[in-house]
Computed example of a mutant assay.
Amino acid sequence: MTTYPNTEETIQLIQELVSIPSPSGYTDNVIQFVEDYLTKRDVDTYRNRKGGLIATLPGQDTTRHRMLTAHVDTLGAMVKEVKGNGRLKIALIGGFKFNSIEGEYCRIHTAGGHDITGTILMHQTSVHVYKDAGTAERNEDNMEIRVDARVENADDVRALGIEVGDFVSFDPRVETTDSGFIKSRHLDDKASVAILLQLIKRVQEENITLPYTTHFLISNNEEIGYGGNSNITPETVEYLAVDMGAMGDGQATDEYTVSICVKDASGPYHLGLRNHLVELARKNNIGYQLDIYPYYGSDASAAIRAGHDIVHGLVGPGIDSSHAFERTHEASLTNTEHLLYHYIQSEMV
């Protein structure tokens, strides 16, 4: 029998996912990748009108359902202005700071269907020219894209097919290390998407009969607040978001365990479900941490705000430097996969 979790396989899947550009609003290609992955395994799927993907595994109890969700959309940008000097102003998609993308390689996805590369820089980058190169504010007025083409004015840029509203994606720069780390942009939340795909695969390979019909929502608008707030069946009782655990000063979350969120900016998560997850972790020797994420919202909290009568929770691998140059460890991926494996086979709270 195949060893599970197969961490190498999970990491390979993460590498494939983060390499597909998918800022919120530009997710068709990555949704197609996930759909193809599941279709090959004869999993029933359908797309909602927002473009997200729902997969369903039947269970013994069809009157009460579970839903697990992870989001495949990422941070990104959009062309805001074609400047007279041939450079581009950008508007951010998602909650992050301009300083986290300074110097990053990017791709402009034109409406005509082709990509043009560039680099995100301060206008005042050259220290040989600009006295305030180090002190000028990193903001929408000062940051711009240097297009990798011979352009000297706005007309030259538009001749390439670039226009206001074109999506901009960031180079993930994905790497793995011999010490077990994977570092890349967009581990939030493609690491969790890979984990859910691996979980579905294992259920099939082991011919597991789940106690409840279980849905898997691969949402595509989480970074802008509403990815998982719809397409929740009325039979759904438990709704578990699988998303990154936030690390930093005062946080318990680390890169080696599964993070179980007890509260974020939306308020506390369901106490009974939280306690159930902790019990499963303890019973199965799964490394975990309980934590509060102060500036965070999930697809589960979006579902609650939308008025769904559900028991909601949030777990995920610990991710360092969220919304910037992210990193996690294979141990965190493994602990998260183990917890979800036992959770979907457990009784409801």
Score class of each variant (00 low, 15 high):
residue 59 G to C: 09
residue 142 N to D: 04
residue 180 G to K: 06
residue 126 S to W: 11
residue 349 V to Y: 05
residue 294 P to R: 13
residue 317 P to R: 07
residue 175 E to Q: 05
residue 168 V to M: 06
residue 305 R to E: 07
residue 228 G to P: 04
residue 261 C to A: 12
residue 178 D to L: 10
residue 128 H to E: 09
residue 116 I to L: 15
residue 150 R to Q: 10
residue 155 D to E: 15
residue 319 I to N: 10
residue 100 S to E: 15
residue 182 I to H: 07
residue 260 I to C: 04
residue 178 D to Q: 08
residue 289 Q to A: 15
residue 334 T to R: 14
residue 15 Q to C: 04
residue 41 R to H: 09
residue 209 T to I: 06
residue 80 K to V: 03
residue 105 Y to W: 15
residue 53 L to T: 07
residue 237 V to H: 03
residue 326 E to G: 06
residue 64 R to L: 13
residue 157 V to T: 14
residue 300 A to Y: 13
residue 20 I to S: 04
residue 209 T to P: 01
residue 297 G to D: 10
residue 94 G to H: 11
residue 200 I to P: 01
residue 269 Y to D: 05
residue 139 N to S: 13
residue 236 T to K: 02
residue 91 A to P: 00
residue 227 G to Q: 04
residue 234 P to N: 02
residue 37 Y to K: 06
residue 222 E to R: 01
residue 239 Y to W: 02
residue 8 E to Y: 00
residue 190 K to L: 10
residue 87 R to Y: 11
residue 249 D to M: 00
residue 197 L to P: 05
residue 41 R to F: 05
residue 235 E to V: 02
residue 118 G to Q: 13
residue 112 G to F: 12
residue 277 L to T: 11
residue 115 D to V: 15
residue 321 S to H: 10
residue 294 P to M: 13
residue 98 F to D: 13
residue 169 S to C: 10
residue 233 T to V: 01
residue 84 G to T: 09
residue 97 K to G: 08
residue 285 N to A: 15
residue 76 G to F: 06
residue 13 L to D: 04
residue 294 P to H: 09
residue 276 H to E: 12
residue 165 G to I: 08
residue 328 T to S: 15
residue 115 D to C: 15
residue 276 H to C: 10
residue 323 H to K: 05
residue 334 T to Y: 05
residue 223 E to I: 07
residue 39 T to K: 13
residue 160 L to S: 13
residue 132 D to K: 11
residue 323 H to Q: 03
residue 160 L to C: 14
residue 159 A to V: 04
residue 139 N to G: 12
residue 138 R to T: 13
residue 228 G to N: 03
residue 235 E to G: 04
residue 85 N to S: 13
residue 85 N to W: 02
residue 13 L to A: 02
residue 177 T to Q: 03
residue 152 E to H: 12
residue 287 G to T: 14
residue 180 G to A: 08
residue 60 Q to A: 15
residue 147 V to Q: 10
residue 165 G to A: 11
residue 324 A to K: 03
residue 129 V to Q: 11
residue 149 A to C: 11
residue 248 G to L: 03
residue 170 F to T: 10
residue 96 F to N: 12
residue 260 I to R: 03
residue 172 P to R: 03
residue 347 E to T: 10
residue 136 A to G: 06
residue 169 S to T: 14
residue 248 G to W: 02
residue 10 T to N: 02
residue 224 I to L: 02
residue 240 L to N: 06
residue 280 L to N: 12
residue 11 I to C: 01
residue 308 H to T: 05
residue 267 G to Q: 02
residue 315 V to P: 06
residue 31 I to F: 00
residue 70 A to D: 05
residue 184 S to K: 03
residue 321 S to T: 04
residue 174 V to I: 10
